[in-house]
């Protein structure tokens, strides 16, 4: 359409393409390609076709761990969807009400944990929940629930849930801000019109505001999905690469780490690790694909 010289387009694109291609895309493709090789004792790599994938998906020694990590990861994601995003929505809805005092201060403070390093977050929560230090226990005691205290991070049944909630605690600010931005973008006239017709605040929220921010909720969902299936740092810094107890907190990120780099005397395999990486990529791709083709197409586009 626009008459523009090719070299001009090239100049706009070149820096980004160059840096991205050499320091991200190429290394990633190199890794994905490695998944089709195996390594011998001397460290030489030989083409092995789909052998690694076969092992990973069908050999119980590998597949048990893989599917366990996959299942945990799905659980991790659902906890975020059920806790993080509804709370984020609630906070955003309250903040976007007219004339809430201190709204700016609340926003500032609620977003704060997001900025902190996972290393710090993991350590702080470990201290708080530590049975030896007793902070969580004495807090529960003050409301008469001391006997309900458990070493949640150490129990198979509760460790993953606890870690997911810590992650929710840290990242709540992101969905909150995105949804808040979408809510305040709704034209005032639309709401005013409904109010004139006598709709309650409750109805205005459910029938007018919520449908209008659906595209943003879609975006939040897909960002949560990609983030959760790439997660690693928190679990690694709290539970280590073995993601105990009994692998109950193992997710794809930690499973990949152990496979790729090894752990203690377990020797890492770059080729097998690459196969895990490829499967992670496919999982994320599937999710993003569903989002683009099923969800986003239906929702009318709305700037967030």
């Amino acid at each position: 359409m626009n008459r523009i010289a090719r070299w001009q387009i090239a100049i706009f694109l070149a820096p980004a393409l160059l840096i991205y291609a050499s320091f991200s895309a190429w290394p990633l493709l190199d890794t994905l390609g490695l998944g089709f090789f195996n390594t011998d004792e001397a460290g030489q790599q030989h083409f092995a076709g789909l052998a690694n994938y076969y092992k990973l998906l069908l050999d119980p020694q590998w597949s048990d761990g893989f599917w366990n990590a996959m299942g945990n990861n799905v659980e991790f994601f659902f906890i975020h969807m059920l806790v993080q995003n509804p709370i984020g929505l609630l906070l955003a809805a309250l903040l976007s009400l007219k004339g809430v005092r201190f709204a700016k201060s609340y926003q500032t403070l609620l977003f704060l944990p997001t900025l902190l390093s996972v290393v710090i977050i993991g350590f702080i929560w470990q201290l708080i929940l530590s049975p030896l230090w007793g902070v969580a226990e004495s807090l529960l005691a003050q409301v008469g629930l001391a006997e309900h205290f458990q070493p949640w991070l150490g129990e198979e049944g509760s460790a993953l849930l606890t870690l997911a909630l810590i992650s929710v605690w840290q990242f709540i600010g992101i969905p909150m801000m995105l949804i808040y931005a979408a809510l305040i973008a709704i034209p005032e006239e639309v709401i005013e019109a409904a109010r004139v017709e006598g709709a309650s605040a409750w109805r205005i929220f459910w029938q007018i505001r919520l449908p209008l921010i659906l595209p943003t909720l879609g975006l939040v969902t897909i960002l949560t999905y990609v983030g959760n299936f790439n997660a690693f740092d928190l679990i690694y810094s709290v539970k280590g690469a073995l993601a105990g107890p009994n692998y109950s907190t193992d997710i794809l990120g930690t499973y990949f780490y152990r496979t790729f780099f090894g752990y203690q005397s377990q020797i890492g395999s770059p080729t097998m690790g690459a196969a895990v990486a490829t499967l992670m990529f496919l999982v994320i791709l599937a999710g993003v694909g569903v989002y683009f083709f099923a969800v986003q197409r239906r929702l009318q586009r709305h700037a967030f």
Partner: peptide, 16 residues
């Protein structure tokens, strides 16, 4: 090509 980078964590390419 760029969208690919959103989906794959760059950590996977560490050794390269």
């Amino acid at each position: 090509f760029f969208a690919f980078g959103i989906m794959v964590p760059i950590r996977l390419g560490t050794v390269a």
